[in-house]
Every structure is written in C-alpha cells, then in structure tokens.
C-alpha cells in the first residue's frame, strides 16, 4: 500500500512538474494570443462604432472636438498612455452618458458635456472611461455578459446585425460591476493627479448626478451593480484629501464655455 501511495504522489508531482516546466515558455507570444485578441477587439470596436454612427449624429464641430481631444491628450501625456490608442467620439444626445467600447473608442454624449460644470469635471469622467479601457474592463464585461463565443461570431461577421445591436445596447446602457467601477475610479484619480487636474470636480459632478437620481433609483441602489454616486464621490475625495498638487484646468475656461455654447446652438 505505501508503495502505491508513493507512486500516486510521483504521478501528481510528474504532472505538476510538466505543467510548471511548460509554463516557463512564453506560449502567449508563440501562439500570438495578444495579437489575435487585439485584432478581435479592434474588429468589435469598428462594428459597434458603425452601429452608433448609423443610429446617432456624431458631432464634428472643431470647437467641440479640439477641446475634447486636448483634454484627452493632456491626460494621456501625463500618464504615458499612447494617445492614438484612445479615440473619443462625441454624439449629439441629451442623455448624461459616456461609455467605452472595444478597440479604445470612448463615446461621449453631448448631454454630459453640457452638464459638466467645468473642464476638470469632464476630464474626470473621461479619465474614468480611459481607465476602463486601460484596465481591459470593456472586453471583460462583454465576455461576462454575452460570452466569448458570441463575441468571436460577431468579430468574424457571422453574428448577425440584430445581435450586434443588442450587444451595443449593453455597452451603452449598463454599468460595470461594483469592483470594476471602483477600480476605474481609483485609476482615474491617479490619471488626474498626474495631469494636475482636480479630481474633486469629478466628485462634485457625481454629487450632482446623485441629487438628480430619482427616489426610486435611490431605493434600488443597494441592489444595483453600479456603486452609489454619492459613495463614489466620497471615496474619490478621500483618495485626494492628502494631495498637495497645484491643480490646473486642462483647458481655459473660455474654451470650455465656447464648447458648451457650441453645443447649445
């Protein structure tokens, strides 16, 4: 009997040892896994972007786009993020919303730009969406919500337009889970601090959103996957309370006001 136990142990060690030795090889590089997943993400990004551009009106006004791009550039430069990896699109829609889609695309509704009190508040929202992109939350969320098989069928063009529209709807109207939202908030604060942008303006923006939330939503908030806006504002303020950075607005107040008046026209 001890001989059998010893042999079983040897077999277990043999398997684990084989696994360990094989793990030393960079299979991800050999099988080009990253390249393949990046390509899939790009294809999905193009597909969803096409859906949004077909259904909504994209804003191409230079006075709006240049301000948005300058803010994005500022955050990217301060955080060593390749600015060409993130593409911000502004959609004409009164809803206060912004979301990330695969392939580094971020969709911002004009309603959000109008609602943001200043450029720093918008920078906070943008930094939050950029954090979702950089932390690969978008693909994680999609795989969790619809499964890898559905995503692969969409990327290869065999998923059908109805399915693609439904998945696009998920991206624009549902939040990430609580853990990922908090992770993105913390990363966003880090981005803002490095860019010398005051994250307190993001907290103020979230307080504003919280005040506008209907009473029903407030009651349901405990069951929601999205963290309570007030709670988010609080932990953002807690994170920066010891900061001694001299904050600056990412763009001048005039440019921000000009952007908002362009959107009102």
């Amino acid at each position: 009997m001890p001989k059998i136990v010893l042999k079983i142990l040897i077999l277990v060690v043999l398997f684990l040892g084989t696994w360990f030795v094989l793990e030393q090889v960079n299979w991800m590089k050999i099988f080009k896994v990253k390249k393949l997943t990046d390509e899939t993400e790009q294809k999905l990004g193009q597909l969803f972007l096409k859906i949004f551009t077909e259904r909504e009106t994209m804003i191409v006004d230079k006075s709006v786009i240049s301000v948005v791009n300058d803010i994005q550039q500022k955050i990217c430069t301060a955080n060593n993020i390749n600015s060409s990896d993130i593409i911000v699109h502004v959609v004409e829609k009164n809803e206060v919303n912004a979301f990330a889609i695969p392939g580094g695309h971020i969709i911002v509704y004009s309603g959000l730009l109008k609602e943001a009190k200043n450029a720093s508040a918008f920078s906070g929202v943008l930094a939050h969406e950029m954090a979702h992109q950089e932390l690969n939350h978008v693909m994680k969320k999609l795989v969790k919500e619809v499964g890898l098989s559905v995503l692969l069928s969409l990327a290869t063009g065999s998923g059908g337009s109805e399915l693609a529209t439904q998945v696009a709807q998920i991206l624009s109207s549902s939040a990430f889970d609580r853990k990922l939202e908090k992770e993105a908030d913390m990363k966003a604060v880090q981005y803002l601090e490095k860019a010398k942008i005051n994250a307190a303006d993001l907290a103020d923006f979230l307080y504003g959103v919280a005040e506008k939330e209907s009473e029903i939503t407030a009651y349901l908030i405990w069951a929601s996957t999205h963290p309570d806006s007030k709670q988010r504002a609080q932990y953002i303020l807690d994170k920066i309370k010891t900061s001694s950075i001299q904050y600056r607005s990412p763009v001048t107040e005039e440019r921000w006001k000009s952007l908002q008046s362009s959107l009102e026209d």
């Binding site: 090889v25 991800m28 890898l148």
Partner: peptide, 23 residues
C-alpha cells in the same frame, strides 16, 4: 470559464492544456 466568464487565456492555461494533451 474562459468562454463564459471573465477568465482570460493565460500562459498558465496554455501550459496546463499542453500538459493535459501530453498526458
């Protein structure tokens, strides 16, 4: 779990599957 959850393909997973194929 890779196909239906947020679990992702990793070097550890590929090494495990290769060990499985070998055995």
């Amino acid at each position: 779990s890779i196909f239906f959850t947020e679990e992702q393909i990793s070097n550890r997973y590929i090494a495990y599957m290769l060990a499985v194929i070998l055995f």
